[in-house]
Simulated assay, not measured.
Amino acid sequence: MSTKTDRLNLRCSAATLETLKAAAEVQDQDLTSFILGAALDRARKVLAEDHSLRLTPREVLDLERALDADPEVVPQLAALIRGARTPSSASAK
């Protein structure tokens, strides 16, 4: 377990503080744990999204070409889709 040595200060309105306190209480957490947990969750999502959405210039060109290309029919997928439609149309008869 890492030692907590750094400090984070922030300012907010009285209404914001009351909202945060009420939410922390509902979650049965102290205010620090509630705010830190929420902030860490959001930070991890932002970093994961940034990591997964970052493309190299080459990847951007490849993606643009793929989006501009004519659609390719995959016979197995087309058959699967036709098969998925059949039961619902049969039950309608």
Rank of each mutant, 00 (worst) to 15 (best):
T5H: 15
E72C: 12
L31W: 03
R58E: 07
D28M: 11
M1Y: 02
L40D: 07
D70N: 07
E64V: 14
R85P: 15
D68A: 13
R85T: 14
A22G: 00
R44F: 04
E64I: 11
S89C: 11
R82A: 07
P75W: 01
A14P: 14
T16W: 00
L80Q: 15
M1L: 04
K45G: 00
S52V: 06
T16F: 02
D28Y: 07
A79V: 03
T16A: 10
L17D: 12
L80V: 08
E59D: 04
R11D: 00
T3F: 10
L17Q: 10
A90H: 15
L63E: 08
A48S: 02
A15H: 05
A15E: 02
A23H: 04
D68S: 08
E59F: 03
A69V: 07
T3E: 12
Q27P: 06
I81D: 14
A39W: 02
T3K: 12
L61G: 00
L40K: 11
L10E: 05
A92E: 09
K4E: 03
L53N: 13
A79I: 05
L55R: 09
E64Q: 10
I81K: 04
E49R: 12
P71Y: 13
S52W: 14
R44K: 13
E64G: 12
A38L: 05
L20S: 01
H51A: 15
I35H: 00
E49D: 04
A23M: 07
D62N: 03
D41V: 03
T86W: 11
H51R: 04
D6T: 12
A14Q: 13
P87I: 01
D28H: 05
S33C: 10
Q27W: 13
E49M: 06
A15G: 01
K93A: 03
L40M: 11
L17K: 09
F34N: 00
R44G: 11
P71M: 10
A14R: 13
A78M: 07
E72P: 06
L31N: 02
D30W: 01
E72R: 10
T5E: 15
S13A: 07
A15D: 02
A69I: 08
L53D: 09
L53T: 14
R44Q: 08
L31Y: 02
A14D: 06
L53Y: 04
L63G: 09
V73R: 06
P87K: 07
V26N: 15
T86R: 12
H51F: 03
K45H: 10
E49L: 06
P87W: 00
